[in-house]
Simulated assay, not measured.
Amino acid sequence: MTEIETIESFERHLRSGASLRGVVLQGLDLRGYTRELASVVLAGSVFLGCQLEQESVQAALAQGAMVFPPFLGLPYLPYRSGLYSTEELYAGFDPSRPESYADTLDARIYAHWSAQGRAHPVSIVEALAQRLHDHAITDAMEELLAGGGKHRKVVAIMGGHSMLRGQPDYRGVAVLARELTRHGFFMASGGGPGAMEATHVGAWFARRGEAELDAALAILARAPSYKDREWLSRAFEVRAAFPLSAEDRPACASLGIPTFHYGHEPPNAFATHVAKYFANSVREEGLITIAKAGIVYSPGSAGTIQEIFQDACQNHYNTVGVVSPMIFLGREFWTRTRPIYPLLEQLAQGQEYARFLRITDSLEEIVQALEEYDRFHTLSTIPR
């Protein structure tokens, strides 16, 4: 079905003379188009959260169209037409007043989610609105990754939210993400602080040199933890000092996938696209599923370990049609501190994904392994 998500697209469609049969219109204010709607076929069309005059509603229903009315009084749009941006989520934030975060859209949605029962909304209407919101986010994310018909090569980096700015591990993740972005991979993460933030910092600096990256990391290190009062302020200081130009933005793009479930950890400010979900389970599964070019596991705790075994399950049973690399950054950490790798290696014996398992301390080896897999995957899908 054709999807129309902007007034400009709607007007172009009308000018083309085409009917609205089989067209989905999402989140549009169409109250000024009652006459135009009366002159086209509406049978088979779907209106998702559109604002319509009563005359248009009656005409649509009479012709057999589906009309899903908008939800009123919510701080979020259930029928979103696109992903969030950092600018949208943090509109109203003043870096000189860290407490101004409470005025942002991100904070207001989290407060609403908490007041409505958190993961278990007391209202069935609220639960429905949240599910529709998450469906819209998934739809927008799929459109982003399709990239006009050319699918992006998504690599995710997983790791702990408690990884501190200023630590060698943080810098290592940032450098790795920068190199992978330069090699044409599209970086994704859980969108939060720690290793997740470092992933997007790396992508942000894909067109900048070592000295500029180090200067930015020094600024960030003045507020090492997301629990520090100026954690977000320092991020916006870096964004102001090293902005992305319109030319740089496509080459430095990345995708953060956070959740309001962990709303006490604000999303980092460096992801250029933000797919923020209410349902953490949908967010977790989705992040692992889209990372078909591979996942790098930097040091982390329970959440990262959960992701490892979710990924292993997908690879073990090939549930998404692609068996992709699982690369562990930190030999000592993943064999002794958190001895996951030996177990995973044993689990993978005799399975296709065994050859795509790797553990290393070398960032260069990770880049090389992911490039080799990309070449292998490209060759294996070329028709013969």
Rank of each mutant, 00 (worst) to 15 (best):
L347D: 13
P299I: 07
T319F: 03
L370Y: 00
V323A: 07
A269R: 13
A271G: 15
S324N: 15
N280V: 14
P250W: 08
R338E: 07
L344K: 05
P250K: 02
L287I: 11
C313M: 14
F328P: 01
W231D: 03
E237A: 12
D311I: 08
P342K: 00
Q349T: 11
A251K: 14
V320D: 14
A269F: 13
E365G: 01
E372G: 12
Q314F: 15
A235R: 04
P299R: 00
S245L: 08
V296T: 10
A235W: 08
I288D: 12
G350F: 00
I308D: 12
G294P: 09
P339W: 04
P266R: 09
P258A: 04
I257F: 05
L232E: 04
Q351I: 05
P267Y: 11
N268W: 11
R358C: 07
A240R: 09
T319S: 14
T304I: 10
F242K: 01
Q351H: 13
Q306H: 14
R234K: 15
N318S: 10
S362V: 04
I288C: 10
A312Q: 06
Y317I: 08
F278W: 03
F260E: 08
E372S: 09
A369I: 02
L343R: 15
A369K: 05
D311E: 12
V367I: 08
L287E: 11
S281N: 12
S245C: 06
F270H: 00
F260K: 03
D248P: 07
L329P: 02
L344I: 11
Q306C: 13
I327N: 01
